[in-house]
């Protein structure tokens, strides 16, 4: 064979393989793109959840999600500057309970330092500001898990707009905080599912649910009044939360079956083509 022919064959052969790869990979999902945090992912752990230990080593197994915070400006009384600018969130679950760790910088420990997590409840969307009523959309309630330093406990609440905050008669949320070196670490825990589906958000492993955060710096001004209180707080937008489902290997099984099927198809096709050429 002439060298020129050989080169041409190589170009055609390698090109055909590359084109096939291009076409097939075009149909495959794109590579995961790096993006800023939009979701908190709670991996499932074996053993005991660190429900009352914000400094437990196991927290490092959960990937932190970082969310920017803004002053609450949506509704009076608003505030235009807050202490906390960013919030780091980690979460873990054990199939029964979920633990969420909030971590943020605060120069001083104050009795009125407080933090909260907010979820939508049920299928109806709710405005991120306490489930404010919306003009053209029928909204649902929000479920708020609240912690204040001086109270040393978690509080389970609901709201459908500012001024409607109501403490639930059944308290499922626990919370504990630890302050060290200008950083608060606050852990909230609750069973993934509860019996009170109308008030409590239900965290189904594998499913995404909206989550938002609020933080109050409990410092006081020169007159002795709290600077951040009530609706005057740092808030986040709605983001997503997901308790990870147990590992699902079905994708690998389907892939192996499809590859075996393609291999069999190749085998049958080539055999038939060879028979045709021999005839």
């Amino acid at each position: 064979m002439k060298p020129a022919n050989q080169i041409r064959q190589w170009v055609s052969g390698v090109g055909a393989v590359a084109v096939t790869a291009l076409i097939l990979s075009g149909a495959a999902p794109g590579l995961a793109q790096e993006s800023e945090s939009v979701s908190v992912s709670a991996p499932m752990v074996k053993g005991t959840l660190p429900v009352d230990d914000p400094n437990a080593a196991i927290w490092s197994t959960a990937k932190p999600a970082k969310f920017p915070m803004s002053p609450q400006v949506h509704w009076p009384n608003r505030i235009l500057e807050t202490t906390v600018k960013d919030l780091s969130v980690r979460a873990l679950h054990d199939g029964t309970q979920v633990a969420v760790l909030l971590e943020y910088a605060d120069p001083t420990e104050d009795p009125d330092d407080a933090a909260a997590i907010e979820f939508m409840v049920g299928d109806k969307k709710a405005h991120f500001a306490h489930g404010q009523p919306m003009a053209q959309v029928e909204g649902g309630p929000v479920n708020i898990w609240y912690w204040k330093n001086k109270d040393k406990k978690g509080v389970d609440m609901n709201a459908m707009g500012f001024g409607t905050l109501k403490i639930q008669t059944h308290q499922d949320v626990k919370a504990t905080g630890a302050f060290s070196n200008g950083t608060w670490k606050v852990v909230f825990t609750r069973p993934l599912a509860t019996e009170h589906t109308a008030e409590d958000t239900q965290l189904i492993p594998g499913g995404f649910i909206n989550i938002a955060f609020a933080v109050w710096d409990g410092r006081k001004d020169g007159a002795g009044d709290l600077v951040e209180k009530g609706s005057q707080k740092a808030v986040s937008s709605w983001w997503y939360f997901r308790a990870e489902a147990p590992p699902d290997y079905s994708g690998y099984y389907y892939a192996a079956f499809a590859a075996a099927l393609a291999l069999g198809f190749q085998f049958v096709l080539i055999r038939k083509l060879k028979k045709g050429q021999a005839a």
């Binding site: 790869a21 097939l24 495959a28 892939a255 499809a258 590859a259 075996a260 291999l263 190749q266």
Partner: peptide, 12 residues
């Protein structure tokens, strides 16, 4: 490559 790409696409 062909069966592997089919498997990859199916997994995706």
């Amino acid at each position: 490559l062909f069966p592997l790409l089919v498997g990859w696409q199916t997994y995706g």
